[in-house]
Amino acid sequence: MSKIWLFIDRRLNLSPLLREMADHRIPDHANPLKKASAFMYCFGGISFLILLLQLLTGMFLMLYYVPSPDHAYASVSYIKNEVAFGALTQNLHRVGASAAVVMVFLHMLRVYFTKSYKNPRELNWIAGVLLLLVVLGFGFTGYLLPWDQKAYWATTVGVNIIETVPWLGGFIADMLRGGDEVGALTLTRFFVIHVMFLPALLLCLLAAHFFMVRRQGISHPL
């Protein structure tokens, strides 16, 4: 093991990078072992964990899911009823979505009420608000994918709301729907947004978010 590591490290010189990542200390006010109120500082990490879980369960659901009006509903039924651990995976993904929204919201409240957004962490706050939008976008696009009554009509209402926005609303609504009504194009668009565009955006924003936390350290206590 150590020989393999030495082989790699001699060529790529990774140890300074690793040291930079692992070699820092946790301030006591953010360490739940030292101070009970530090649990508030776990919300961001837990959000990240849940998002990772969503990526993982999402990948497994994609093995069977078919994004077309004719097959979407049946493929979800198949996942729930036939696939090994399919029901658990599907329900974990659904419950995880709720949990992600809750944890991201709690994380945001912690940062707001401890005023951690103040100088010098303004940019990281903005990255955080963008991440909130991305997570809500995941929720909105994912809701259509099971292609059941609730999905179809909630999305119709949601896109109609977007359509009322002056100037850009009609354009955005048409882009999302791919026509005048929620239909086959809407489903493929929401699917691709849900599994490609948003995850790419999410990973970039998370990288920036974590980079800034490491660069600036955890904010001071009140």
């Binding site: 009006p69 509903y73 979505a97 709720s98 929720g139 809701y143 099971p146 292609w147 059941d148 009554q149 609730k150 999905a151 179809y152 009509w153 909630a154 119709t156 209402v157 949601g158 009504e181 929620v182 239909g183």
Partner: peptide
């Protein structure tokens, strides 16, 4: 839920 039915506009949807 039942499969999506674009003709059943009486369905009262609730969001997440």
């Amino acid at each position: 839920e039942e499969m999506a039915d674009p003709s059943d506009s009486a369905y009262v949807p609730r969001p997440e």
